[in-house]
Design a protein around this nucleic acid. Structure first.
Lengths: 237, 237
DNA sequence: TAGTGGTCTAGACCACAGC
DNA sequence: CTGTGGTCTAGACCACTAG
C-alpha cells in the first residue's frame, strides 16, 4: 500500500473489521496508539478513523474509545442513472420521443401535489427507447417559476430531464420505487399487455425549498432493474 | 450557528450552492481565502471543504481551485429496513411463518450462484405478515460454512434475517430491485392473483469475500414501496 | 477525575495541473 | 513556472463521560 498514510491506516483498520477479527462492539486502538504504531501525528490517525466513521464502520464514544459498529444492511446506495446514460451503458442506441406537452396551472392532486407549486406548470409525456424498443415511459410536471429559461427549450428534441440537469442548480430530491400493473395508456406506450408488471420510479425535486419537478418513469419489468452495491468499506486494497 | 467552526464554514458554503448563488461550475473561495475570512487555520478550512467533497457537492482541482459540482441526481440512499422494523414502523403487528427449511448442497444456478458457495447450505422459505395479512414472501439460501452456530437457531420462531444480522459480522452486499409478475407459488403465498405485479428485492451478502446468504423478498405492489430521500447537503441550519 | 475524542493552530513540504 | 490542493506535524485546549 503506497500513497497517503491516512489511507493505509484506514485500510488496515477496515481489514480487521471486514475480516471479522474485530467483531461489532470491539474497541479499536486508541488514536494515540495509532500515532505510536504508525509514527504519525494524531491528526493523521484521527483522519483515518474519521473516514471509517463517515463510512459507518465505527462509532466514537468519548472517554471510552472507538468501537466497531453493527452492520446496517439497510443503508444502500442506489445509482439511479440518467436514462440516456443507462441505455448507452448497455451498448444500446438511445432514442427519445415527445408524446405531449402542454402548459396549465398546477394542481393539488396527484404526484405534483408534493411539489406544492402554484401557478403555471409544464406537463410533459414522453418515451425513451433502447435500440428502437420502448424502454421507459415518462410523465413529468415542471414548475415554470422554478425553471427560468425553460421556454427556450425544445422538448421535441431534448428530454426534459437532460435540460433540467443542465439548467437547474443543486437540489434536494425524494424518490419512490414501486411496482405497478400497467394501465391502458402505459401498456400502449411500453408496448406490453395491460396489467403487465412494471417498475415505477417517482422523483420529486426541490431547489431552495421550491418545487421544481415531479416525474414518474415506468419500465416494463423485464427491461430494467436497479442495482445497488453496498460497499461499506471503500478502503480495500 | 454555534458549534465547530468547520461546520459553520460548510454550512455557509452549502447555502450558497443550494440556493443557486453559486451555480454548477462556479469556483468557490480558495482555502486560503477561507482562512482569511473566518480567521482560521488552513486545516479547518480544508476540513470544511472536504466535507462538501464527501457529500459530492464540490470537486477539487489542483492548481485551479474547488468548483461546484453538477447535481448528480443518480446517487440515492435507499433505506432497506429489516422487514419487522418496517412493519412495526407502520403501526402494524408483525407476524412470521416458516414455510420450509432444508439442508442441501449449494448449486451453481439461480440466485445463489453469485455466492459461489460450495458445500452444504440451508434453504429457507418463509413469510412475513402485517396485521395478519401476507406482507412479504422470502426465499433464502444460507451458506453454512459462513454461518457458524446456525444449527442452534430455530427458524420456526425467528426469521433468518434477524438471526444473521445478530450473528454475522461486517459484510458486503449487493441488491437488485425489480418488478415481476407473481407466479403460482408466489401468488399463493402473498394471497394475490397469478400475474399480479410485485416488487422484488434480491440481496447477496458476503463476509470477507465468502458468500453468506442470498435472499429474495417479494412484496405485492400495493403493500410496499421504497422511499429514498436525497439530501445532498446535511449542512443546513 | 482522568483520559478519551473533538477541535484547532501555525506552520511545513510535496505533487501536479494550469498558466 | 506558480499556486493550488494534499498531506502531515507537534503541539494545544476543550467537552464530555466512563469509572
Amino acid at each position: 500500500m503506497t500513497g497517503p498514510l491516512h489511507l493505509k491506516i484506514s485500510a488496515d483498520l477496515a481489514d480487521n473489521i471486514r475480516s471479522g477479527v474485530w467483531p461489532p462492539g470491539h474497541r479499536i486502538p486508541f488514536e494515540h496508539e495509532l500515532t505510536a504504531r504508525y509514527g504519525c501525528a494524531r491528526a493523521t490517525a484521527g483522519k483515518a478513523v474519521g473516514a471509517l466513521v463517515s463510512a459507518g464502520l465505527v462509532e466514537r464514544r468519548r472517554r471510552a474509545g472507538t468501537f466497531v459498529a453493527k452492520p446496517p444492511v439497510q443503508a444502500v446506495v442506489v445509482e439511479i442513472a440518467d436514462i440516456r446514460t443507462e441505455v448507452e451503458a448497455r451498448g444500446q442506441a438511445y432514442g427519445y420521443e415527445l408524446i405531449a406537452s402542454r402548459r396549465r396551472l398546477a394542481r393539488a392532486s396527484g404526484d405534483e401535489a408534493r411539489l406544492q407549486a402554484q401557478g403555471p406548470v409544464l406537463e410533459i409525456a414522453c418515451r425513451h427507447f433502447a435500440d428502437g424498443r420502448p424502454f421507459a415511459a415518462e410523465d413529468r410536471v415542471i414548475n415554470l417559476a422554478a425553471a427560468p429559461g425553460i421556454e427556450a427549450a425544445d422538448f421535441a428534441r431534448e428530454p426534459p430531464g437532460a435540460w433540467l440537469l443542465a439548467h437547474v442548480a443543486w437540489s434536494e430530491a425524494e424518490h419512490r420505487i414501486a411496482a405497478a400493473a400497467a394501465d391502458g395508456v402505459l401498456a400502449e406506450r411500453l408496448e406490453v399487455a395491460q396489467g403487465h408488471a412494471c417498475l415505477v420510479l417517482t422523483r420529486w425535486t426541490w431547489q431552495a425549498g421550491q418545487g421544481v419537478t415531479s416525474v414518474r418513469q415506468t419500465f416494463a419489468a423485464e427491461t430494467y432493474q436497479l442495482v445497488a452495491r453496498f460497499t461499506p468499506v471503500p478502503f480495500g486494497r
